[in-house]
Design a protein around this nucleic acid. Structure first.
Lengths: 347, 347
DNA sequence: AGCGTTACCGGTAACGTTCTCGGTAATTTT
DNA sequence: AAAATTACCGAGAACGTTACCGGTAACGCT
């Protein structure tokens, strides 16, 4: 019943070769005879050898773990992003360690610490709703862990970090434009925290669309919500006490739009007859509502894929720089992904 | 700019003590003078020392990683379960590595392999919709990593594994009973795959409730769906071609219920006037639908908490057995959590 | 023939901890 | 006062890999 797990030493002994060679075979290095490589691999398979990621990581100073920080586990959008991340990273032998900040800046910092403790090879992060500073990202950079931010980024970050987003201005613009084309005239916008880039940009897109069509933008029609749940009601209240109520509402994202729809229905307001509602996210869930939610689709999976790709790029660049003895210069890259309209029943 | 990370050796040198002692202080062992311990911890803090989980894991043969396998990332229920798992495990210094099987048995096996490769200390798993065998769980047991199954379990598994579920029979029973009390008479049930324990039990609960109330259970009224999305429509179709259509539907879980509601509405059938709909899950999302979904609440977070607790128990039992030179005897434990009704508008 | 390549392979020192064992001094017990 | 216990600490060997440096043989080139 003694079942010590086989190691490369065992393989080396049985094949009468050195551990170095076995290691080469296992990790698929060049510089090895295909024949011996096959022999090693065959025996490894036969005796059920498993490489110790721990030991390998210790020796090579790599963990083959990538940390992913998202604000919330249950938001469908992030689920789709993770799918894309996996799609890119799994074939490369990386595993994901997913943590969530619960939309709190404080917890977000803790997440970074956890991941750094774990010695992840890189971090993919989408900022929480309430994150105002990116000092914790700096911390990661100082430890030389590459980091890529996706979707929820900070507007003016001087940090030279790659970022992947959708064209948020365009999203806000197209959403508003769609409503205008449908004949709506008093269009409101439910925004998010001021510091949030997606909020700023989408709002900007909304404003631009309104102005270009000669509607102007009354401040009354722009109300912020500070989270995805509780304060949506307050935001909506502000709109409903207006003398001239809006005939359409653009919500910062789908989860907010879902709540808006629900709250309107509770007030007995018909959608889209009395008031139209638009989201921005492209959640599948929107299809299940009654009426189904018109939304701007964000290519979530692609975003994950691209972000992961960017991360690996950075990791390699860093390694190269090191090998050549140069200093690695972090870069600010901003990648914008195109969006598209999904027209459903709520408009 | 040379920034080699500090190790326990550095601390040992600067404090002129041995690495052993430093190690003792860091990992909080007894057998150390509180004074020296404080000195070590202070210096560690000061120079920004971080313990290498990799090295520690290698030496102690523990990774402090717990693997979590869920069928789908975007199902809210599992999000809540993970919250509970974290709640229990984080204080103990464990991190989670979350993977998903995409509701496929094959991928589920791969997940197990990934986790075993990672040398996780334990595995928490909820089976996929289509998992018919638990041989892959056996594999984990053979490698001596404890495993606990939650929510989605296999009905008749001879494997001595701890399992945490809700009282699924009771859930099906109460759901049906609620509808009966509301005056519905022809109540249909949308079940899942036959092999799925939750499906069996909830169905059984439904049957029992029907019979006890003298309604009997016509086979027509029980239709299965094989997944959470596509085949829901087919299941519903079967009910709608019946001469005597049902006046209420119990869905196996909330995601299915959401779809049922949507499909009914597309057919112009009013809920709950023409047909009532009930879910079983307790997803918050159900509140946002129009009408909001009446459901049976499963204590998801508690389930995660309990499952994690059970896992740690098993891990300790295994360790104890080893220390005393005994053989560890795995046990089949079945823990049932109570459910409760959330009455909303769909019934 | 001499020399530089190329293709392989081996030895050995890391990597940063923990663990086991043993030892010393101080403290308690008898 | 001797013996036993306790509290604390150190030395050094693991843990399982990879990285680095060298070395040998075979091959091709001038």
């Amino acid at each position: 019943m003694k079942k010590r797990k086989p190691t490369i030493k065992d393989i080396a002994r049985r094949l009468d070769i050195s551990v170095s060679t076995v290691s080469r075979a296992i990790r698929g290095a060049e510089d090895i005879n295909p024949m011996t490589k096959k022999k090693v691999l065959d025996l490894a398979e036969k005796i059920g050898y498993k490489k110790s990621v721990l030991a390998a990581g210790l020796a090579s100073k790599k963990s083959y773990l990538i940390g992913v920080i998202i604000p919330e586990l249950t938001v469908p959008f992030f689920g789709r992003v993770i799918l894309g991340i996996e799609q890119f990273l799994k074939p490369l032998g990386y595993d994901l360690i997913i943590v969530h900040s619960d939309e709190q800046e404080q917890k977000e910092k803790e997440c970074i610490d956890i991941l750094l403790d774990r010695q992840v090879d890189g971090i993919l992060i989408s900022l929480s709703f309430n994150t105002k500073s990116d000092l914790h990202l700096k911390k990661a950079m100082e430890e030389e862990v590459p980091i890529v931010v996706f979707d929820r980024i900070l507007p003016k970050s001087e940090l030279p970090i790659p970022r992947v987003i959708v064209d948020d201005f365009e999203a806000g613009y197209q959403a508003t434009n769609h409503l205008i084309n449908k004949g709506y005239k008093r269009i409101a916008f439910i925004s998010g925290p001021e510091d949030l880039y997606i909020s700023q940009q989408r709002l900007k897109g909304y404003r631009t669309a309104m102005e270009r069509n000669g509607f102007g933008t009354s401040a009354d029609l722009i109300v912020p919500t500070l989270d995805l749940r509780r304060s949506v009601g307050q935001a909506l209240d502000k709109l409903m006490v207006l003398k001239e109520k809006p005939d359409a509402i653009v919500a910062l994202n789908d989860p907010i739009a879902f709540r808006v729809m629900r709250l309107l229905q509770k007030r007995g307001i018909e959608i889209p007859e009395k008031i139209a509602v638009m989201g921005i996210s492209g959640d599948d869930m929107g299809e299940l509502f009654n009426p189904s939610l018109t939304t701007i689709n964000q290519p979530a999976q692609e975003m994950g894929f691209v972000a992961a790709n960017l991360l690996i790029d950075r990791m390699n660049a860093m390694k190269d720089a090191k090998n050549q003895g140069k200093v690695f210069i972090p870069m600010a890259i901003l990648k914008k992904l195109p969006i598209s309209l999904i027209e459903r029943e709520s408009t």
